[in-house]
Design a binder for these strands. Sequence first.
DNA 1: GACCGCTTGTGAAACGCTGCACATGGTTGC
DNA 2: GCAACCATGTGCAGCGTTTCACAAGCGGTC
Lengths: 225, 225
Amino acid sequence: MASKPRRPIPDATVSRLPIYQRVLDDLQSRDVATVSSEDLAELAGVNAAKARKDLSFLGSYGIRGVGYEVDYLLFQIRHALGLTQQWPVLIVGVGNLGRALADYAGFTTRGFPVAALVDDDPAKIGTEHVGIEIHPLADLAALVRDLGIAIGVIAIPSSGAQRVADLLVEAGVSSILNFAPAVLSVPDDVHLRQVDLAVELQILSFHRQRGQRETDQIDVDRGPH
Amino acid sequence: MASKPRRPIPDATVSRLPIYQRVLDDLQSRDVATVSSEDLAELAGVNAAKARKDLSFLGSYGIRGVGYEVDYLLFQIRHALGLTQQWPVLIVGVGNLGRALADYAGFTTRGFPVAALVDDDPAKIGTEHVGIEIHPLADLAALVRDLGIAIGVIAIPSSGAQRVADLLVEAGVSSILNFAPAVLSVPDDVHLRQVDLAVELQILSFHRQRGQRETDQIDVDRGPH
DNA sequence: GACCGCTTGTGAAACGCTGCACATGGTTGC
DNA sequence: GCAACCATGTGCAGCGTTTCACAAGCGGTC
């Protein structure tokens, strides 16, 4: 209530806040009390002016001549990101990717405990993974309701992704993280984010080729191809 | 050689080209010969004008009054992305995430065959995963050289990520895709992309909370609008 | 208690991206 | 062969983001 953002926080800033949080977590665990925008920016891999401007959207929490108090800044970032409470997530698809996500320590430690696993493979249903029982797809709506799931993660092949997204929306999930390489359509009030692993490689490929074209002109010293 | 981009292709466009490619792949497999910018944009989840502008950076490959020839456009996109040849990748870390990536069909079908797996767990070394032998970390440089690896994928916990990145760079890899939640530093001529799974959830959390705050004030009419 | 050095917070300029609106030019039908 | 139609390609204006440069403010020092 007290901290209503006067200016709305830009999307670009929001996408960097988790990075600052991670860096600050690390500093905190090493008992560092304060940090300057320059050091923080260095650790986060950004420009110092950008870091200051990003943090200024949260409020004026720095001390001139000194820097930012690590503990307090961490609290403010968590608050801005809505991480003052835990958000249980449900993962659909317990293949290698689903298991990797369920195991991923970063989820739980950052306030996103994996509360439920769902799959449609009869051989998997009823078994457990890291202590979490695997439920059939039909139980999805009940799980969302009973566990207070706010975020659904889609980790299945793209052919079934839209159907699962529809199920999640219908069950009342308000945010979806999709790993299937498919464009999903969801209502406007549902937040959808897309992580496409192959896209990242293709972007690398583009830059690689572009760099090589330049060096083509100068010389070629790529070993045996 | 003939098609040297007069204007450099903007980053934002590059990041969308793989999406167009995926959509066009799908159209091609359904024997669709031509597609309009409007239909393509719809399938890719973007604005029609944006799609046209994106494609115009590749050259003038559309036919006014008709649309784009699917086969030809696909070829041009592949060419622009440097996907006219295969780029073998090496994955470091054969945990659940590494296995998920090795299994991921999207890699191979898009020209990025997984050519080598590396891990430092003695229990895993020498065993195989989907027919690919797991090598010790010490073999990294030799594998890169012998297999002509251009892209390295880091799928290990963040504590060892920088060390592995250094090894990859030293071995001559020019592009790195990092899944470890850590900021890595590499030379300027090495391309680095970061995929941070927890960051995506935190961004969702932010928007979720913001949406809730707004509706708190007005009232709730979540239903179909 | 005044000064000096240091770091924050921010106006403003530069840059890149988006989306509209329309001229351009190819195709089809008569 | 001409006209009507249609979808592309792009000039331009608006918007968000980045970056610079500097005033404002805090803490330590003499």
